[in-house]
Simulated scan of single mutants.
Amino acid sequence: MPSVFTARALLLDMDGTLVDSDAVVERCWSRWAVRQGLDPAAVLRVVHGRQGHATMAELLPHRPMAQNYAENAVMLAEETADLEGVVPVPGAPAFLAALTGHPHALVTSAGEQLALARMGAAGLPLPPVRVTAERVGAGKPDPEGFLKGAAELGFAPEECLVFEDAEVGIAAARAAGMRVVGVGPRAAAFGPSAHAASLEDVVVAAAGGVLTVTVG
């Protein structure tokens, strides 16, 4: 049975939700793992949805955070320059087209330049409201980004519906008091309010300032 939600605004993660950037993430973070003497597969299980310095802190807990921030700046530049294989998630162009003129925001752990680069490489329009890594004090799974996105759009948390693919993002949405649609193969395991294999399984209709979202 399809799941049907009504909302006043949608809050959208980027990587894994709108943009398939797995190829870049795997290349960059696998190289980083090898440099640190870590198992790349173990690193890739942790990295999705987090800010880079938070991933480093999780994997190397005894390392000074200043080193993580410095290394993350290098990593961000590397990821921003590497756009090979960055494509839209199936259904993303039509999904975003359906949101044109309706309240929605991008809430991503990526920095502004990385978000611009990846959305551009995928040929996707940028939402007018964007909450990127530079704009929060605490990244996902902290709810700050989603709460900030809702506030900037002018809606209460319970009026918003989140789209996410990663465990930390789904946890952040829940902590913000929001319903969340899990997108893609990773998301189903993390207990979202509903799950879509891709955005091809999501239909958005708008009437009277209310968005009706059908999943499945």
Rank of each mutant, 00 (worst) to 15 (best):
M1N: 12
M1Y: 11
P2D: 14
S3Y: 04
S3L: 03
V4W: 07
F5P: 14
L10S: 08
L11T: 09
L11V: 10
D13C: 15
L18W: 04
D22M: 15
D22N: 14
V24P: 05
C28R: 13
W29G: 05
R31D: 13
V34T: 10
V34G: 04
V34H: 04
R35S: 08
L38R: 08
D39F: 07
A42M: 13
L44K: 06
V46A: 06
H48E: 05
R50W: 02
R50Y: 05
Q51H: 03
Q51V: 05
A54S: 11
M56E: 04
E58V: 09
P61N: 01
H62A: 15
P64S: 06
Y69M: 01
A73M: 07
M75L: 14
E79T: 11
E84Q: 15
V87M: 14
V87I: 15
P88E: 01
P90L: 14
P93A: 10
P93S: 08
P93E: 08
L96A: 09
A97T: 11
L99A: 07
T100E: 13
P103N: 02
H104Y: 12
L106D: 08
V107A: 07
V107E: 01
L114E: 14
A115Y: 07
R118V: 05
M119P: 10
G123A: 05
L124E: 01
L124H: 02
L126G: 03
P128A: 15
P128N: 15
R130T: 09
E134T: 10
V136C: 06
G137E: 15
G139P: 08
K140F: 02
K140E: 01
L147M: 11
K148M: 12
A151S: 00
P157R: 00
C160Y: 03
L161F: 06
V168L: 07
A173W: 03
A175Y: 10
M178P: 05
V180S: 01
G184N: 13
P185T: 13
H195L: 13
A196I: 06
L199Q: 11
V202I: 12
G208P: 10
L211I: 10
V215G: 05
G216Q: 14
G216T: 14
